[in-house]
Design a binder for these strands. Sequence first.
RNA 1: GGGAGAGUUCCCGAGUGGCCAAAGGGGGCAGACUGUAAAUCUGUUGUCUUCGACUUCAGUGGUUCGAAUCCACUCUCUCCCA
Length: 377
Amino acid sequence: MFKILHKNGKARRGEFKTVHGTVQTPVFQNVGTIAAIKGAVDTFDLREIGCQVQLSNTYHLHLRPGDETVKKLGGLHKFMNWDRPILTDSGGFQVFSLASLRKITEEGVSFNSHIDGHKIFMGPEESMRIQSNLGSTIAMAFDECVENPSTHDYVKASCERTYRWLVRCKDEMKRLNSLDDTINKNQLLFGINQGGIYEDLRIWHMKEIAKLDLPGYAIGGLAVGESHEEMYNIIDKVEPFMPEDRPRYLMGVGTPTNIIEAVARGVDFFDCVMASRNARHGFIFTRKGTLNMMNAKHSLDTRPIDEECNCPACRHYSRAYIHHLFKAKEMLAMRLCVLHNLYFYNELMARIRTAIEEDRFEEFRRENSGMLDTRIP
RNA sequence: GGGAGAGUUCCCGAGUGGCCAAAGGGGGCAGACUGUAAAUCUGUUGUCUUCGACUUCAGUGGUUCGAAUCCACUCUCUCCCA
């Protein structure tokens, strides 16, 4: 299923075959939490900007429109007109981001809906059932994403529980994939490593989940409060215990530099809302660094956002125009910037892949790491 | 011609003697954002080099220890009656 085509240092150039097509790695997954990329970007756009995998969310789609509804409509692929791979996050991140609205027990997590407050219970089995109804290509294990820093005692108890939840996820998925009316009987389960910033817990947890022989492994619980150095350190420490022949997914990360640094440490899959959210807020990534399109200095600038970029926004529109659209609060501003940032991220991954293939990833890293996150004066 | 009302900082607008460089919006300027409760949130917005000082509430003059607030006149605008 996963094949490493070439290695350059620890960086891996791979291919992941799924029933919805083959993913070239390292890959950036484009985040469409509620079965849509925010900013009026549709699946035709996604094809044009080089998106390979879309990410959607279990918790959010369970609430609206409801996973049963999506199933009746033929599954998530049909629902949003996307025939390529979809990865669904399990709801584990909402255990972190909606911390004030939930309670955790051994059985699972009860949430108060962020929409209307009604009670929802989600444990490993519920998360797997919902993801099965959605019919995504890859389902993520239901975990607890723990904020950093948390105490060693808390993180230990939490990641031990997350391990037990993973065993339950695996059993439930096996059962669901065997049912007659299951949309995607080949749905894959990725396990998620936790352990906060504690090396001993991270390594223990990784060793345990590796034994479950899952088709992919993620590192979760990073970029949730710790420093970049701590994040890189955890990847360094955990990576040797991740199965070499399975894809590695660093969840929710990150900046272009974070991604380059993680690829250098052997990571294959990424996703991050930063590309699209920042774009909606006028914050743009370019090959020379970052820009804020709201800034007055763009008001008479006839250049495209990024002169080296071939995205729809850069091919046709000036900085001055996009700046005006933001000032006028026109939705098109967000749309163009989301298209640009996602194009940038997808293209960044393509450049990383080529650099690995050509054995010059270290050079690429030297030239781009750090620089891409720096504000252009 | 007669009567009524109004002029506040970039704009709208609150403020009717001291706690007012002046509420609250808007706009402007800038910042944040990492498995999306985010089309969101934060800061700042008279001048000067900070404590502080100085200049502002249509204009001029006055009352008062003290005025955006009270008085007189002037200017401008709105409405009603002729």
